[in-house]
């Protein structure tokens, strides 16, 4: 096991696969919750989603591949990369689709680190892409 990979064939076969899809109806309450959580008082966010809204998407397990396949149980967020194409406004219905983009491993101080990269595409009710996100989560 010492130089064995933590990435099994089964895990590798998931790369590129869709891992989840979630529909969000963007309403006033949702926008207020995000703006309050960020503590951003700009009144613009009463009607429009702040950048942080995109950062709230694709968590809660939606973007994550099946946990039982992964041998390392501790999780830490590594970083993110977001592209904004169109504003998300109150009343929009957006669909966030995630897929497993990449898996790679590194040797850490206390053992293997597994990097799980998920990609999320966000489309509005008109079928227009509004945003894209890429997030790296590290298992150890």
């Amino acid at each position: 096991m010492s130089n064995g990979s933590v990435i099994s064939e089964e895990m590798r076969s998931l790369i590129g696969m869709e891992t989840g899809q979630m529909v969000h109806e963007v309403d006033k309450t949702m926008l207020r919750q995000v703006a309050e959580a960020v503590d951003d008082p700009d009144p613009r966010w009463h009607e429009e989603a702040p950048p942080g809204f995109l950062m709230t998407l694709a968590v809660s397990g939606v973007g994550a591949p099946p946990a039982q396949l992964f041998p390392l149980t501790r999780v830490v967020d590594g970083g993110g990369d977001w592209e904004f194409y169109l504003p998300v406004k109150m009343g929009d219905v957006i669909t966030c689709t995630t897929r497993l983009a990449e898996l790679y491993e590194r040797e850490g101080k206390a053992g293997k680190l597994l990097f799980i990269v998920t990609e999320a595409t966000v489309v509005n009710q008109h079928g227009q892409p509004v945003a894209k996100g890429r997030a790296t989560v590290i298992n150890y």
């Binding site: 995000v34 950048p51 942080g52 990369d81 904004f84």
Partner: peptide
């Protein structure tokens, strides 16, 4: 981590105002 990313989003939107557009972060 994502809350800190959202803070950085606010840093930018506070600066660029209503007529600026954040494209990538």
């Amino acid at each position: 981590g994502r809350l800190k990313a959202a803070f950085l989003g606010q840093l930018i939107t506070d600066w660029i105002g209503d007529r600026g557009n954040l494209r990538k972060l």
